[in-house]
Amino acid sequence: MWKHVAANGLSLLIVALLAVGGVVAWGKRAYEQPGPLAEAICLRVEPGSNMRRVSEELAARGAVDTPQIMRLGATYTERSDDLKAGSFLIREGASMADIVGEITAEGQSTCGTEVVYRIGVTESEIRVRELDPATGRFDIVAEFDPAAEAEAPEAYTEVADRNDTRFRIAMAEGVTSWQVVEALKAADFLSGEVAGVPPEGMLAPDSYEVRPGAIREDLLALMQERQGDRLSTAWENRAEGLPYDTPAEALTMASIVEKETGVPEERGQVASVFVNRLREGMRLQTDPTVIYGITNGEGVLGRGLRRSELDAATPYNTYQIDGLPPTPIANPGLASIEAALNPDETDLLYFVADGTGGHAFGRTLAEHNENVARWRAIEAERQSN
Rank of each mutant, 00 (worst) to 15 (best):
I337K: 02
A183G: 01
R283H: 03
I69T: 12
D287L: 05
L13N: 02
L89G: 05
G241I: 07
Y117S: 00
F88R: 05
L72Q: 01
N385F: 07
A353K: 12
A340P: 06
E173K: 03
E57L: 13
R52A: 15
T75M: 15
D188T: 02
V159K: 15
D81W: 08
A271G: 11
E114K: 13
S336E: 03
G22A: 08
T113L: 05
R127N: 07
L349P: 00
S232K: 14
D65W: 13
A239P: 02
E130L: 10
A74P: 04
A377G: 09
S255Q: 11
M51E: 09
G213R: 14
E123T: 13
P247V: 06
A94K: 07
V121Y: 12
E154W: 04
R61H: 11
I215N: 08
P36M: 13
A377S: 13
E92M: 10
F167I: 07
N342E: 13
R216N: 03
L348T: 09
V181I: 09
P67Y: 02
L310E: 10
A234K: 01
D139I: 11
L43E: 06
L365M: 10
L43D: 02
E260I: 07
R162W: 07
R168K: 12
N371C: 14
K84R: 14
L37D: 03
G21M: 06
V352Y: 10
L190W: 00
G93D: 11
D81L: 07
A271N: 06
W235N: 04
I169K: 01
L184D: 00
T165D: 03
P315E: 13
Q108M: 06
I69W: 10
A74T: 12
P153G: 14
E209Y: 11
V64N: 01
F88C: 04
M96C: 08
D245C: 05
A16W: 09
D188K: 00
R279I: 09
